[in-house]
Write a protein that binds this DNA or RNA. Structure first.
Lengths: 333, 333
DNA sequence: ATGAAAGCGCTAACAA
DNA sequence: TTGTTAGCGCTTTCAT
């Protein structure tokens, strides 16, 4: 059942059927009704491939992120998908992993699908720095508008929305210090741009309060609760009275460590996580955490994208979004 | 840059270029090399829409699930995506929500995309029962093979892989009873088929141990940790010495309740969760939970799908997969 | 091994 | 308002 069949049955030309399908105003209501009736009766569905070929678009947005299983990205993807569907777009999903090579391959593959726009979720992709590792994004932007969520990159056809992680960790670390903590352990699992910005805020807070920045207090670990706990237990040399983590999972690892050492929280150990995830309210005591407002980032991105795809021009190239601290039980301020 | 351009530059016909693109054996190695060189030089990428039109396929699998943000489904989607990509397939993603109407709409929309197969993730879609609410799946299966993950439905072109939830809860409840528990609270947030099967196992265990099945000990609640805790705190009439939950989040709510009441776990309250999620190892004490082996379900599904798409015939219509209990600290057996 | 040409099902410019 | 027709870029059959 194709457009020719419908045209024949309805006694009109294919052009008219096409117009009805696309709800063109240049068809009389009467024929519209008639054609629609025929389409209904025969369960006609326009062929999207042919349509794509003609329009050079299948109304599809590519979403790429390092790992959909990560709860932060899963929420982002869920949110993006829902809003895009409202606007009649489909999502094709690519998990790129965290490796540079894989990221580039993923982009290459996804661009072949002739998507209408590309969303890159995660600060692993770009973060305001200019090196070779970011050229593939620029190249992608030559073909299709690129939207970075929690990424930052200047360039033609590239739009960044990111959370102000640096300010957030600065504020959090400052509060720890002002509450009397002197040795803040910085826990991270990543060298992403956002991790760098978080570390920057941490260091700035130390310095501006006259505290030394010690290398051994910046710890890279895998993001697995028990693994983090065990690492901390094994590092008996390490002295710290508080933890600032770049992810709730890491922070929970620290909480588990405190349990294992029978330390009281927050008195003997303060802990601050990141992302305001379910984990932060699951662990005991519940975790003070930084909410980086993933939903807002997504919303702003979609708004910008839709305006761009509708031909508007005045889309901001960069939108920083403030985080806020959610105070729970692992801190005493 | 299209196939005609490449053909002209390489001094061959478009048919030959097409053959090279598809790596047909009916082209001499010499011309293959020549044409490939030209394609490389001009960064030629075949137009997927035209290709789709010709082949009536864009090598795309539709994945539909009620909510990608849910950690169980997020892992499943992540896993499916990775494996499908290995086979050269793309994923288009639809979040359907849990409502019947929305589910039907989602299917209708996704079928318009002329996907090569459809994966439905989650026991919300079907579970071995024959009612009207499942007809839309049968209709979908007329157009494209349908793969249910943790769903069960007999029918032409429908393939089910599901975990044996009934056995799992039967075993878990039996162990609780044999460890001396008499009042097991069954906590669930869903009327999905899998929730029903879980309840069935729970009831069977009670009966086969000579215990009564009490309606008030089967509790439907929203899946939010604090919400569950508060509900339990408010239901002062409810007496129970153990909890069997259909999801880790619910179980953690019970753990929080025990904390609030200063009850010792597992002595005064045993808790068993479901899904072996990160939450189960995050909470304190850590949660005994049922692992329903989501990865295995996905793997089996993909294997079956690929065999089917390659023209093989002997695909099992139903594959039950056993769960297993992961013992942690909220039980004393 | 290669080429010519007929689709695939739609959109849109142009005519009427 | 409606119809005719020329693409869109590819696959594939049929010749050669």
């Amino acid at each position: 059942m194709n457009i020719y069949d419908i045209a024949k049955i309805a006694g009109v030309s294919i052009a008219t059927v096409s117009r009805v399908v696309n709800d063109s105003p240049r068809v009389s209501e009467k024929t519209k009704h008639r054609v629609r009736a025929v389409m209904e009766e025969y369960h006609y569905t326009p062929n999207v491939f042919a349509r794509g070929l003609g329009l050079n678009s299948m109304q599809t947005i590519g979403i790429i992120c390092p790992d959909v299983a990560d709860s932060y990205m899963a929420s982002a993807v869920a949110f993006l998908e829902r809003r895009l569907r409202e606007y009649g777009y489909d999502c094709i999903l690519y998990a790129s992993s965290y490796k540079q090579k894989k990221k580039e391959q993923a982009i290459e593959l996804i661009l072949k699908k002739r998507i209408d726009a590309l969303v890159m979720v995660g600060s692993i992709y770009a973060g305001g720095e200019e090196d070779a590792s970011v050229q593939y994004i620029r190249k992608a932007a030559e073909k299709v508008p690129v939207f970075l969520i929690n990424g930052q990159l200047k360039g033609e056809n590239i739009y960044s929305v990111y959370s102000e992680d640096c300010q957030a960790t600065f504020a959090a670390a400052s509060q720890l210090i002002e509450a009397g903590r002197k040795k803040i352990l910085f826990l991270t699992d990543s060298h992403s741009y956002s991790a760098k910005r978080k570390m920057e805020g941490y260091e700035t807070a130390l310095r501006s309060h006259g505290l030394p920045v010690r290398g051994e207090l910046k710890l890279y670990v895998q993001n697995q609760i028990h693994y983090v706990r065990d690492i901390l237990l094994s590092r008996r040399d390490l002295e710290f009275d508080s933890v600032l983590a770049t992810d709730d999972g890491l922070a929970v690892g620290a909480v588990k460590y405190a349990h294992a050492k029978k330390m009281k929280m927050p008195e003997e150990l303060s802990v601050i996580g990141y992302n305001n995830s379910e984990l932060s309210v699951c662990c005991e005591p519940e975790l003070t955490t930084i909410d980086n407002t993933g939903e807002r980032l997504c919303n702003i991105t979609i708004d910008n994208m839709m305006r761009l795809l509708c031909g508007q021009e005045d889309i901001p190239a960069e939108v920083p979004v403030a985080c806020h601290l959610v105070k729970r039980c692992t801190t005493d301020f």
